[in-house]
Write a protein that binds this DNA or RNA. Structure first.
Length: 367
DNA sequence: AAAGCGGGGTG
DNA sequence: CACCCAGCTTT
């Protein structure tokens, strides 16, 4: 009798469930984040959209401001998209804001303002894909759908020494499949957040803290001393560089801004007129800029001194941007290559939603 | 300068 | 499925 009980105890302590170890670690080590206290679907949604391609520390101040201004799904749906973009200004990936705003309106129109609990229905909303469906439904409704973000892919690839490229959809699917069993043995919201938290705090891309990892004794990569070999991913290719010229165009104490088309890159944001140029000599920039401004806004300008040069990296290319002070000579401004053009008093520039580059030009102008 | 994060949309 | 899109942080 005593023998049998002893055997059982040994068995349990030697091979504890990795999910139990993970969740215990999470309960003791998780960060306190605003949407974690009592997860409402709307708060989880906003946080997950902001967290795409953006780290927690970067998005946190944006999140607080956003939730203060739009505390409910209905308040967001009722807002002007320009106000939503203004709050997103500087966070990047502006399509996320446009999609979130549009999707909130669809939830009000089609679902009475309540978040759908059906994965297939949720998935149809703009900006909501496989990952976001699983995140919202698991965290706010405890529905057992595993999320597979970069953190989870990395943790899982190491845990089971998965040698497939984690960037491929098939690998992501395989990882989700392997987590479908485990997630049903505990709170799904806790499981998913614990996996992501472990990836963010312990199982980091470089220099992971294996020594304090709750999954150390379960980890195949660690056992093989090959943690650095996982996850396997394809190298990203080099990005091209372009030169860009723009004009800060004055007329009667005002400055000309153009609003980019609503869809596409930096859609709906305001910018200084100008654009990408070829590899011509720098001495030709003023003439090129003059032509560009004329063809895009119908305004004839005299190009003056260079205001600033800004290097900026986007995800798929880099730019070296040269901003020139210009003076309008003739012509009425028309939105020939944009959705809208407007002459703006310099003091009001801050009220127009711009990308980080736009704000840098404004900052250089203010100096 | 290079690498890492890395979901969604499109074709 | 492959490929394109979109910025900022860390090293």
């Amino acid at each position: 009798m005593a023998d049998g009980a002893g055997k059982k105890d040994v068995g349990v302590s030697k091979r504890t469930n990795w999910v139990t170890d993970l969740v215990e670690w999470y309960d003791a080590n998780r960060r306190k984040l605003p949407w974690r206290s009592r997860p409402r679907p709307y708060a989880v949604w906003v946080s997950e959209i902001m967290l795409q391609q953006t780290q927690v520390d970067t998005m946190l101040p944006y999140y607080r401001r956003f939730m203060k201004r739009f505390p409910s799904l209905r308040s967001l749906a009722a807002a002007d998209v320009h106000d939503v973009l203004s709050l997103w200004q500087g966070l990047g990936y502006y399509a996320r804001a446009r999609n979130l705003h549009r999707a909130s309106q669809l939830v009000v129109e089609q679902h009475g303002g309540r978040m759908p609990r059906d994965p297939a229905v949720l998935r149809k909303l703009p900006g909501i894909g496989e990952y976001t469906v699983a995140a919202i439904l698991s965290i706010s409704f405890e529905i057992p759908l595993p999320v597979v973000d970069g953190n989870v892919a990395r943790v899982t690839a190491r845990l089971w020494a998965i040698h497939d490229d984690v960037g491929r959809p098939a690998t992501r699917k395989a990882i989700a499949d392997r987590l479908t069993g485990p997630i049903q043995t505990v709170s799904p919201g806790t499981f998913n957040q614990a996996m992501m938290e472990l990836g963010a705090l312990i199982c980091r891309p470089r220099d992971p803290s294996c020594g304090v990892c709750p999954l150390m004794k379960h980890c195949a990569a660690k056992r093989q001393k090959r943690v650095g070999d996982y996850p396997v991913k394809k190298k990203r290719k080099a990005v091209p560089q372009y030169d860009v010229v723009v004009g800060v165009i004055h007329r009667r104490g005002r400055i000309l801004l153009a609003r980019r088309p609503a869809s596409g890159m930096l859609g709906g944001l305001w910018e200084f007129p100008g654009g990408k140029i070829g590899s011509e000599d720098a001495t030709a920039y003023p003439d090129t800029l003059c032509e560009k401004i004329l063809s895009e806004t119908g305004v004839e300008v005299k190009v003056g001194e260079r205001l600033c040069t800004i290097d900026h990296t986007y995800s798929h290319f880099k730019i070296r941007l040269h901003a020139f002070l210009c003076r309008a000579q003739a012509g009425r401004a028309r939105p020939l290559a944009s959705d809208e053009v407007r002459w703006v008093p310099p003091r009001e520039l801050d009220a127009f939603a711009m990308s980080t580059v736009g704000k840098k030009i404004v900052a250089a102008y203010d100096r």
